[in-house]
Design a protein around this nucleic acid. Structure first.
Lengths: 214, 214
DNA sequence: GACCAAATAGGTATTTTTTCCTATGGCTAT
DNA sequence: ATAGCCATAGGAAAAAATACCTATTTGGTC
């Protein structure tokens, strides 16, 4: 439930983040310095005052903060499904570029402008879930404690790594090879064993792994 | 730059998403059905009208949409650093639970209420970057085309997988063992080779891998 | 085509937020 | 001690958004 307090609190956090008072932040945004006064957040009649979207936009635009990041400062602070799907821009470099000079400073921080970008996590699936691995049966791809992010709605293609739940209840991680005649051909994750056919009837469901934590 | 058009457009997208007109959405939120009329988004004097945060909150709260997800509908549609850090809640299950009945429907979608939650990606590092793998030198952990998300500011502990850039420019993925006397002990990713010592002087930087795409 | 409900345009009154202004207190520099 | 600046409270005026209302248009059903 988004409330006016949520928005005021987020504005205060934003000011604090830039080491400003709320009046300095208002002033910098071209608003009257008294605009965000605590004394004006509730009327004499006890009625809540909501900062306008125009004032908010002026502040965000002046400070260079995105609307999405501002929304994250509100009390309900986790990103929702949509932001999960759209993801955050993360600088991307190919391995061959990484070998060259000019892409990192001495701490390994990205520098320069020739970086691409990808969206992370970028998983458009409302039914996505995480599976925490136990044991060492799936080493080295999946270690004890690693978390595999699994997307049941994702299309599965050759080479994709998948989680399978068998009718027996067993849960396996495999590499998908192909479908053939009521069977699915699966490879072990370390791929040094020939593919093995599993009858579809033995499988409850199969879903693609999209990310693995490290 | 957040503009009033951004916000209006996002409200229209929201209405469309729920298969409603903007007047139906306003009505459902307890607002006057004419509140979001296109004809009222600009005054006769040409001045832009901004929907109030109060009206917006009423709509979001009625539709059960988070402020963060609404922000994602605006034109600047990528999540920022903060949402990247805080992550989205993803249902989490332990492998042992996954073997039981009652956690998945027949399509592999999560059901039931005994799921934990984790935040994904949950990487609090402004200098995070992605490295796209080429070749098969790091199989099976890192395949050709996989993307490793690398966090230069993350603390590195025993067993963590890291990207190392050598002074020669070579870029390696290894498993961190320990530090000892001006050297770092590193294991191969597939861990069937004894750890090998690299002089720190040979290394430009070393940074932890936090996620790997699949 | 007729009918009805919803959507939309547009005007006015009401409510709400910002602006403008004043006052007070705190902090810093001279 | 004094001056200047900033932060905050508070009041009144101005500006802006919503509520209320009316009229027209649009879309769906029979």
């Amino acid at each position: 439930m988004l409330s006016h307090q949520d928005i005021w609190a987020a504005l205060d956090k934003l000011a604090a983040r830039f080491s400003m008072s709320s009046s300095a932040m208002a002033r910098q945004a071209g608003l009257d310095p008294t605009t965000f006064n605590k004394s004006k957040r509730r009327g004499n009649d006890g009625k809540d005052r909501w900062p306008s979207t125009e004032s908010l936009a002026k502040v965000l635009n002046t400070l260079g903060v995105s609307f999405a990041d501002f929304a994250m400062l509100t009390a309900q602070s986790q990103a929702g499904r949509l932001s999960f799907a759209m993801g955050a821009n993360v600088p991307l470099l190919r391995l061959s570029q990484a070998r060259e000079d000019g892409f990192f400073d001495t701490s390994g921080f990205p520098v320069g402008e020739d970086w691409d970008e990808i969206r992370v996590p970028g998983v458009s699936d409302d039914n996505v879930f995480a599976l925490q691995i136990a044991g060492d049966a799936m080493l080295p791809v999946l270690r004890d404690g690693d978390r595999a992010i699994v997307s049941p709605n994702a299309n599965i293609r050759r080479g994709d790594r998948v989680i399978i739940k068998a009718q027996t209840g067993e849960v396996l991680a495999k590499s998908f090879d192909k479908m053939s005649a009521g069977r699915v051909q699966l490879l072990s994750l370390n791929e040094n064993i020939p593919s093995r056919a599993f009858p579809l009837a033995d499988i409850q469901w199969m879903a693609k792994i999209v990310w693995i934590s490290q």
